[in-house]
Each structure stands twice: as structure tokens, then as C-alpha cells.
Amino acid sequence: MRVEYVRNSSNAKKKVQTTKRELLIERIGSYIVLAILASIVVIPFYILLVSSFKTKGFIGFNNDPNPFSNMNFEGFKTALFGSIATFDDGSSKILLGLRNTFIIVLPSTVIGLFTSALSAYAAAKIRFKGRNVIFYIMLITTMIPGIVMMTPLVTIFTNLDLYNTYFPLMVPGMFGTAMCVFFLRQTFMAIPDDYIDAARLDGISHFKIFWKIVVPLSAPSLISQGILGFVAGYNDYLGPLLYLRGDDQWTVTLQTVLNEFLGQSSSNLYQALMAATVLSLIPTVVIFILCQKFFVKGIVNSGIK
């Protein structure tokens, strides 16, 4: 009996050891895979950042292995105040572009978020015939690629004489997006109906219920959707290039400036292009850092990851 017990015990120990080793291998393997995936994301940013501080063209690893050698701010100076980056009166295209981009993106994001939230509230909390049908039709529109709409939209806005104005970039966004409605509907559905019923008995209208109860209760989700909307508008490269000429102080945007840089790129302008790109990244990075807490909470609240 005793011998058998010992044998059994050593077998069990062996098994435990094997399992531990397997776990370690598994963990190391997963770290390697994650590190590779992370580097795919990080390396372009690294090259971008390092290149913006180097003088001569694209800085590959081969011709300049030390990333911190010969660093300077020439690229940023050129991007901000170089002859190519300024209008005749000396104003910086990048700074004006940044201003104009904000003027275009901010109202359309805020109003778009508001209209999306209203639709989401109706889809989640107001019972009416055909509610689901309307909602699903709206969801189907997300499957239409944006590029399909490009030609008709350009034609429409040109015919409306709105070419080279902010309207084509602002107005469509103000109606909200189906994806945002979908996310917010999920969040609103998680709010117990009793709140709505209690508010109805308290005697407030649906709009007030939405504004005074649902909006404060889903602030994180609204903020995260606002950030997503802002970033989507801010990152829209094609829109401003299609609708704005970018040749004066009011039609220049970040996108048109970057495009201008790209069009004229010679090896010595690479640094300026990289610096301009880094500058254009700053607002989104700041917003993400400031609102990261709301962003994560908002996405979790919506029940969709």
C-alpha cells in the first residue's frame, strides 16, 4: 500500500510539473505573438516620430541606426512656418487647417451625437409600431460602403453650389450615424424601464426624460461615442480633399495641408511632412488621454466590445 501511495504521489507530481511547464510555454508563446502584433502597430509611429526630428529625408534603420543622433526641430519649423507651409500673409497653414478642421468637425460631432442619441432613445425606450423595422433598416445602411455614396454626394453638393464650403463636410454628420445609434441603443436598453416609468408618473415629457435622466445616466457612453465621432471626422482625409480647395485661410484644413506636403515631397521635405503628421496627431492623442476612463466605461456600458 505504502509503495503504491509513493508511486502515485510521484506520478501526480510529474503531472503537475508538466502542466506548469506547459503553462509557461503557453504564456511565453502568447507574449511573443502579442509583442509581434504590438510592434506592427507601434513601429510606424516610431518611424514617424523619429523621422520628424531628423534632417535628411526618410531615416531608415540602415543609414542611421541611432534614433537619437542628429535630432533637430527643422521639420517642425518648416511644417509650421516654412514658405510652403504659410500663406502670403505669413499665417501658418497647419494652424489654420487645425482651426478649420475643428470648426468643421466639432459642431457636426456634437449635433450628430445629439441626433443619434435621440434616435437611439426612441429605438430603445419608446414603444411604437414598426420600431424594430425602422431600426434594422437603419442598421442595414451601415453595410453600404462610403465610397459608393461619394460620386452622388459630390454631384449633389456641387449642384447645390456648396462646393468649397463647409456644408458638405458638416451637414451629413449632423444627422448622426447608424453605428452610433446602434451603440447608444444598446446602452439605453440597459437602463431599467422603471426609471422611464417613474419619470412619466413624475410628469415629464419624453424629451425631458431623455435629457434629464437618460443622458446623465449614459454620460460615459455618450462621451465615448463623441470621441469616436470626433476622431472619425478628424481622420476623414478624403472629404476635405473632395469638397475644399484649401487655397485660402478658410478652406485650408489639416488634410489639404498634408496633401500639399505629400504632393511636393522631395527628400528634404520628408521631415516637414512627418512633423506635420505628428502635429496633426496631437489633438486626438490628448483627447484619448483625457477621456480614456469614460471611453472604456462607455464601450463596456454599451454591452458591445
Partner: peptide, 19 residues
């Protein structure tokens, strides 16, 4: 309408506005 019925209601999950 509910608000004009002069009725007060207490709900199972209290329904207190958290904000």
C-alpha cells in the same frame, strides 16, 4: 395620461435617479 392621474408609484428597484 399617467402624470395627470394624480398617482404616486413605488417601484421594485426603487428607480431613484442616480445623478
Amino acid at each position: 395620461t399617467p402624470q395627470n392621474r394624480d398617482i404616486a408609484m413605488v417601484f421594485q428597484n426603487y428607480s431613484l435617479y442616480p445623478n
